[in-house]
Amino acid sequence: MEKLNIIPHDHKVNKEDRQRHKKQKPVVIWFTGLSGSGKSTLANMLEQGLYEYGFHTYILDGDNVRMGLNKGLTFSEEDRKENIRRISEVAKLMVDAGLVVITAFISPFKKDRAMARELLEEGEFIEVFVDCPLEVCEQRDVKGLYRKARAGEITKFTGIDSPFEAPENPEIHIKTAEQSLESSINQLIDLVLPIIQIKN
């Protein structure tokens, strides 16, 4: 088989070297939740906060992934799974590069999120469940997607005619319909900082 000819190269600079160089523990902070729940808002605010603390971060979201790496994928269930698979592999490479990676995707299926976690070492995957009732997400409908889904212009839309499988044991559970933005960010910072900080 052709795969047998793929032999990993033994790089002289490894993840541990990059971790020491950047003075941080690389992790993936994986935001999951319905469209309109507040994932991207929180992910952006978290990155800003971590950046101000001096950490090396990068956000992966639909805008920078669907326009490039995954621009050939549709929104079919099969392609959505492939979308998450590719994102997971890119996130793994970024962790190897020593970065704190923040992802903001609906990622509705438990199996896909479990696959992303399994690619990483213990403690390198932080699942953030951005929990918000469907009716509140529909009221927000920032991109007008729920209106289109209700009108039948979009099919297989999560929460309408495609399920969202809520995380059972996320590292962080944020209820954006009940918590203020400030409270939510403080909750994130309080949990993430001790994980990624390396004590001298």
Rank of each mutant, 00 (worst) to 15 (best):
L73P: 10
K71E: 07
D141S: 10
S184I: 03
I195M: 11
K15F: 04
A43K: 01
I59Y: 07
D112G: 01
G98T: 06
I174F: 06
G159M: 08
D161Y: 09
Q24N: 11
S184L: 02
C137P: 09
T103I: 03
T32V: 12
R150D: 11
L69D: 08
L50Q: 08
G144T: 04
L34F: 10
I126P: 06
A91W: 02
M115C: 01
S88F: 04
H9M: 12
I195R: 10
R147W: 03
R85L: 13
G159I: 04
D112R: 03
G98D: 06
V90C: 13
I106C: 04
E122T: 01
K12I: 11
S184P: 01
H9K: 14
Q48N: 14
D63Q: 12
P8L: 09
K148P: 09
S162V: 00
W30V: 00
V90E: 08
N83M: 12
V136L: 06
A104V: 01
I174M: 06
T74H: 13
T158C: 05
W30Q: 01
H9E: 14
G33L: 04
I198F: 02
A114V: 08
V28I: 13
L34C: 07
H173L: 15
M1C: 12
D17R: 03
K3C: 07
E52C: 04
A97T: 07
L4P: 00
R117C: 08
V100P: 01
A166P: 12
D161E: 12
P167W: 06
I102E: 03
I106R: 01
S162I: 00
H11M: 08
S40N: 03
C132G: 03
K81P: 00
V90K: 02
F109K: 07
F55M: 08
M94H: 10
R80K: 10
F125I: 05
A91G: 14
D190A: 15
E153G: 07
R20I: 08
K3P: 02
A43N: 05
P8D: 04
V65D: 05
E127N: 11
M67I: 03
V90P: 13
A104S: 14
D10T: 09
G152E: 07
L46K: 01
L191I: 12
E171P: 05
R147Y: 08
L73H: 10
D141L: 11
K111C: 00
P8V: 10
G38V: 07
N200M: 08
A91F: 06
I154S: 02
Y51D: 06
K92A: 13
T155G: 14
E2C: 04
E77Y: 00
L134Y: 04
I196L: 08
N200A: 15
N70W: 06
T74S: 15
E47K: 13
V27L: 01
V13K: 09
I7D: 11
E165F: 14
M67Y: 15
D17I: 07
I189F: 15
N5C: 07
P133C: 10
L50C: 09
M94R: 07
G49Q: 07
G159Y: 02
D79L: 05
V13A: 05
R80A: 06
K111T: 10
F129E: 01
